[in-house]
Design a protein around this nucleic acid. Structure first.
Lengths: 141, 141
DNA sequence: CAGGATCCGATTGGATACTG
DNA sequence: CAGTATCCAATCGGATCCTG
């Protein structure tokens, strides 16, 4: 093992510098987007919207379908869509007043995020057998 | 916009099939790993351990350093390390009894995960200016 | 030194009811 | 139909104290 003070090691200093580069005030945009992809629904929403533009109610039904009848509450769906809209990943389109007709689609930025998420998902899938083994081993010990 | 029932569309059917492929009981391994990367500390731990093996206390100090004096509690650090260990991403090595000497390092699987996380981080960084603009626009409207 | 135990506040997701 | 408001349960992260 390395004997020098870890804080003096060039890789650590580089990390510290890198971390400070992309913050605005108290925000850490990188971690915020990572957290977005880690939550209960956002990745699924990206996957679904990547297949095409959908109305709010349709999106809700599709999400329920692909998550095995575990329905998303419309409150949470709205929250997640707003969040994605705010970061410019999803575009919201309103036509009609009462009843309102609202549709959502990925922006080009959202499509690019989806590609990234896809790659990560596929890697985890390829590794999932290995992960299962590690867990089984750990849980029996 | 597509006029057919979204649930009938082949891409959606393909998604549903894909989602069911990788679950074990009530677990969704893919989302679990994504959530891992989205939490407060895990990605940072991966970044730090990717620079080399470290003792628990050293890791704690380095994490504090690179997150601008916002210290991780040792309870949470232990939790996160256990979680990473369980999935086979981190290896724990104990030498000595009282006081114990414990060191952590990435496994090859953990190094691979780190590479994936890195790519995602770098993409978000490249996009961060665009995201900031979208947010500013959204917040003023 | 590493980490378990306990308690706490904050955040997240879900259920339900209501409105333009 | 889409969205808001309210209330509630579960989870997460932090602080503190204690031990081999």
């Amino acid at each position: 093992m390395d004997r020098t003070d870890p804080l003096e090691r060039p890789e650590i200093i580089a990390l510290t510098t890198e971390m400070s580069a992309h913050r605005r005030g108290r925000d850490e945009p990188v971690r915020e987007v990572m957290a977005l992809l880690g939550d209960r629904w956002t990745t699924l929403i990206l996957l679904v919207l990547a297949t095409g533009e959908l109305r709010h109610a349709e999106l809700k039904r599709v999400l329920t379908e692909i998550s095995f009848e575990q329905a998303i509450s419309q409150r949470v769906l709205t929250l997640k869509l707003r969040r994605l809209e705010r970061d410019g990943f999803v575009a919201r389109n309103v036509t009609g007043d009462v009843p309102p007709k609202v549709s959502y689609r990925l922006t080009s930025s959202g499509a690019a995020l989806h590609v990234q998420a896809r790659e990560m998902i596929n890697w985890v899938k390829r590794s999932s057998a290995e992960i299962e083994v590690a867990r089984a081993l750990f849980d029996t010990a």
